[in-house]
Design a protein around this nucleic acid. Sequence first.
DNA 1: GCAAGTATTAGGGTATGCCCTAATTTTCGC
DNA 2: GCGAAAATTAGGGCATACCCTAATACTTGC
Lengths: 214, 214
Amino acid sequence: MIKILIVDDHKMFVEGLEFILSKEEDIEIVHRCYEGKEVFNKELLEKIDIILLDINLPDMTGIEVSERILKMNQNVKILVLSMHDEESYITEVLKSGALGYVLKNTGRKELVTAIRTVASGRTYFSEAITNTIMNGLMNNSKKAKPIEKDVPKITRREKEVLDLILDENTNQEIAGKLFISLKTVEAHRSNLLSKLNARNTAGLVKKAMELNLV
Amino acid sequence: MIKILIVDDHKMFVEGLEFILSKEEDIEIVHRCYEGKEVFNKELLEKIDIILLDINLPDMTGIEVSERILKMNQNVKILVLSMHDEESYITEVLKSGALGYVLKNTGRKELVTAIRTVASGRTYFSEAITNTIMNGLMNNSKKAKPIEKDVPKITRREKEVLDLILDENTNQEIAGKLFISLKTVEAHRSNLLSKLNARNTAGLVKKAMELNLV
DNA sequence: GCAAGTATTAGGGTATGCCCTAATTTTCGC
DNA sequence: GCGAAAATTAGGGCATACCCTAATACTTGC
């Protein structure tokens, strides 16, 4: 039996939830809170498995509630219910330690799936939520792109040599691994130095790590 | 009709894809590439809607391919196929502009769904992928601070030498700047190598940057 | 304060890295 | 295809980094 605590200040919504969940054999609503501060009760927390947590509470945000609860009791699982699918909200919720985030316009069936998933310790997110996050990641990077320093073009062979240098191989060892002469390796190394504007190995490694290639 | 280009160096895998997709009425495989560089062909790109792109190509990474293609032709959609679900991979792929990322162990049905979704301009990610990203977001914030590895204790003088090494100074130059003999600098450098478990300058710089000190 | 440990200093010898030059092969634009 | 440009190959010569050992100064615990 999955024991549930609902935390939401909209009584009508809470009643709707109770009705929906009453049809599930394995789910039992143990308690309801209409304010954030009511939740911080050790005995209460020990009796329940999952908290269905609203983000917009009258006295504090659901994010603060989530953080504080997980400091008090690591066993309880938190499933956030929210009307908002803005990226900033979602990432904050994820950082707070909640295991799931579903939108309030989610259907009965999906809500039950989310509850059972979170109850088992796994994570659950509405499709719209994952889309928001994924799109956010994609856009962030597009904006971040144009800053990109002009990476000098390293040839295939030079890249191989560079990788082996970064792995602490000596030129001799690199020559052996790539089946070329010591002198050739030194030439590649030299070209890398000039392409990356480095004076020696130290600069080479530093530039390589700054630009990307590790 | 969704016109597809497959880019993957594993011929067996490509043939498997062809077989699977041949059963779909609305999907047509127009061309196959077994190397990244074959893809950069304007005429080819104009004929197709979606690229099914492998990440591990012999000559370059799928991420590079994705970036270059989207610079050439904004209309083409990219769906990445990969065996890896590591977070770093996925975020790189998202940044590259690809619209979807599915694992190679995905079933036929899901693959077809992914193709149709991406063809319509929307994004699609395997469930495992979204889980990885979500877990990554959740853990990032928790880990952020406490990671800090046990930094071997570097002495004041060694630190000075290390800083100058990182600034591409030779031992001779360091000796001049610190008013000590060349031989002393070499000794400090030697001790740094052993304290940081490095074999040479390359390892020294790498470890130094990984640990903190830049 | 004194002994034990560590930091800083340094030398001799060898391996390695770096610069200049240059031939051959591969790639690329037209 | 063909010619130019770039990549890959390599040698000689010198500077630099790395290894071993070891003396002197500087901390630190008791």
